[in-house]
Structure formats: structure tokens, C-alpha cells
Amino acid sequence: MFLINCPYCGKRDQSEFSCGGEAHIVRPKQPTELSDDQWAEYLFMRKNIKGVQFERWNHAHGCRKWFNMVRDTSNDKIHAVYKMGEKPPVE
């Protein structure tokens, strides 16, 4: 079980958090102008990387804040956590 460093609360057990899937997928500002394919790309397509992945996490049983995490899915190493709206750390 991970020990996650919530950017608002500090280190907490993984059981307090929920994962919200891939990060940095921006909801299109003008959905109506998108083709079916473009909309499907936003709606359905997600990466599933073995290696370093950017993820959304929510401190659901804590401060309820969403934040982002850089995690290596091959060994579960958490490289960074950062607040929503902040730029991802450059590798």
C-alpha cells in the first residue's frame, strides 16, 4: 500500500485516496465543434503505460482535494505529487 504525500495534508495511507485515471486530459472548451472521432479521443482513449505515468488522485477520505501524481507503474515508485493546475515536473 502506497504512502502518498498529499500536497495539502502530507503523508497518508493509500486507503485514504482514490485514483482518477490519467492526468492532463483537458475537457474540450468547445465540444460541439468536435467530430465524433475527436470527441471519442477525449472521452475514451487513455494510455496504460508500463513505466512513468501521470495520474489524477483524490484525497477522498481526507481534504477531498484532487492533485496529480507521477508514478512508475512498473515498480510503484511515486516520483512527484503536485497540485491541480501546476505544471508537471520535467523528467
Binding site: P28, Q30, P31, T32, L34, D36, W39, A40, L43
Partner: peptide, 11 residues
């Protein structure tokens, strides 16, 4: 203009 799910109603 938009609401959650609107675009999907005419897929």
C-alpha cells in the same frame, strides 16, 4: 452551448 454529456448525445 454545453453541459456535461451534451456532445455525446449525438455520437
Amino acid at each position: 452551448y454545453d453541459f456535461i454529456g451534451k456532445r455525446s448525445l449525438y455520437r
